[in-house]
Every structure is written in C-alpha cells, then in structure tokens.
C-alpha cells in the first residue's frame, strides 16, 4: 500500500493541472486558427468549398474525440509516422475544436444582419474589406460569449488525452490513485480542480452574454 496523500502528491496533481491548462491553450489556439478558416469556408461563395467544409464539420462532430486521439496516437505510427503523446493530444484537440468553433463562428458571421453585408457591398468594398472592416468586428462581439463558454468544453475534453498516455490532471490523479488506492478522495480533488478551472470561465461567459445582449439588439435594429 502506498501510504497517505502528501505534499508531493499534491504537487504532482498541480503539475498535471498545468498540463491540462497548457493542452487547453494548444487546443484553443490551434483549433481557433483552424476553426476560423473552417468558418470562412462555411460561408464561402464557392459551393464546393461550402460543401467540403460542411462535410468536415459533420465528420468531426460525428466522431468521438477519444477515437480521434486513438487514430492520431496509434493509427499514425502504423502508417510510419511516430507522434508523441503531446503531439497526438494537441493535434486531436485542434481538429476537434476546429469543427465546433468553426460552426459556432459561422453562426456568428451569419447573425450579423444581412443588410450590413448589403450596405458594405453597395459601397463597392471588396469581399475581404467587407469581411475585415464590417462583418468581423461585429461578429467578434457576438462570438465572444459562446467562445468563452466553449473553452469549458475544451478544458474538460483534455482529460481524454490520458488515454494516449499524456499526463494531464486526470491521468496524474489515476497515477496517484494507483499507489494510494483512495479513489473517492483523489477523484474528488480532481473534480474540484476541474471545477475551479471551468467555473470562472462559465461565469465570465455568462457576464459577457448579459453585457452583449443589449448591444446585439441594437445591431439587429440598425
């Protein structure tokens, strides 16, 4: 038996929590960049591009993140590409997040009132000018609350990286439990840490939504 919970164990958990945050940031950054491209493709004037990007979103949203992790970590080496747990987890999260954020942001682009697009067109602005100077600034205001809200999903989903041997918060809890056999205590601590990471984001998202509400109504009226 492994004795009782001590400071070293807690430090190990803290270290795991840091990796959870790090992996979340990788997912947010990578998925954010890829998701932005997906969103642009989803509203592209080209039908082919729209269809392909819609297919990508459907495919990824219809695949469990766990399976994406398995594919990148175990599948790619079978094809001769070796990947580290960090690379596999980061790439999987990036793919996963890109489909969801792409879809959330597509909705935000489309909820900028149509007359705004027309007014920009009527002024002879090019497509990229309309996007950058008229639509994007308004879409960002709409997109902020749901994006912050989705970060909660990213943080929780990083726990799946434990299956490819990536030592983040959940995996470090497992490791400690393997020596201490105190599952209730240890997993409660894990749950509390996840909650402490997620709850402020949920609150923040909610506050943004409340603040964004009136501004959005004005946008629609204009």
């Amino acid at each position: 038996m492994g004795g009782s919970l001590n400071a070293n164990h807690l430090m190990f958990l803290g270290y795991g929590a840091l990796w959870t945050i790090g992996l979340s940031l990788i997912g947010l950054l990578g998925g954010g960049i890829a998701g932005f491209i997906v969103a642009l493709c989803r509203i592209s004037p080209s039908r082919i591009v729209r269809l392909l990007s819609a297919g990508y979103v459907q495919l990824i949203q219809g695949t469990p993140l766990l399976v994406i992790m398995f594919l990148t970590y175990f599948g790619l080496p079978a094809l001769g590409v070796t990947v580290s747990p960090l690379m596999a987890a980061g790439a999987s999260l990036t793919i996963f997040v890109s489909a969801y954020l792409g879809e959330i942001w597509r909705g935000c682009f489309e909820s900028v009132p149509k007359p705004q697009w027309e007014a920009a067109e009527g002024l002879a602005l090019s497509r990229s000018q309309r996007m950058m100077k008229v639509i994007l600034p308004q879409a960002i205001r709409i997109a902020t609350p749901p994006t912050v809200g989705f970060m909660v999903q990213i943080i929780k989903n990083t726990s799946l990286a434990s299956v490819v041997g990536f030592v983040e918060l959940a995996r470090s809890g497992q490791i400690i439990n393997n020596s201490l056999f105190e599952p209730f205590l240890i997993y409660t601590i894990i749950a509390v840490i996840y909650f402490a990471l997620c709850y402020p984001l949920s609150r923040f998202s909610h506050r943004l939504e409340m603040r964004g509400g009136p501004a959005r109504i004005e946008l629609e009226a204009a």
Partner: peptide, 27 residues
C-alpha cells in the same frame, strides 16, 4: 451607383466619420 436602404444600415461599430471615410479610403 449609391444606394440608401430603408433600415439605414450604418455600421454600428464605427463612428459616423469612420462610416463615411471607410469606402473612399479602402475603395
């Protein structure tokens, strides 16, 4: 061709001056 719509469609995130100078500067 200049067009003016029923619902004004000024860009809400820009000042009146920025609304007016946007197209002449960029186009």
């Amino acid at each position: 061709v200049g067009i003016v719509f029923q619902s004004y469609n000024l860009f809400p995130h820009l000042t009146i001056e920025e609304n007016i100078t946007l197209a002449p500067c960029s186009v």
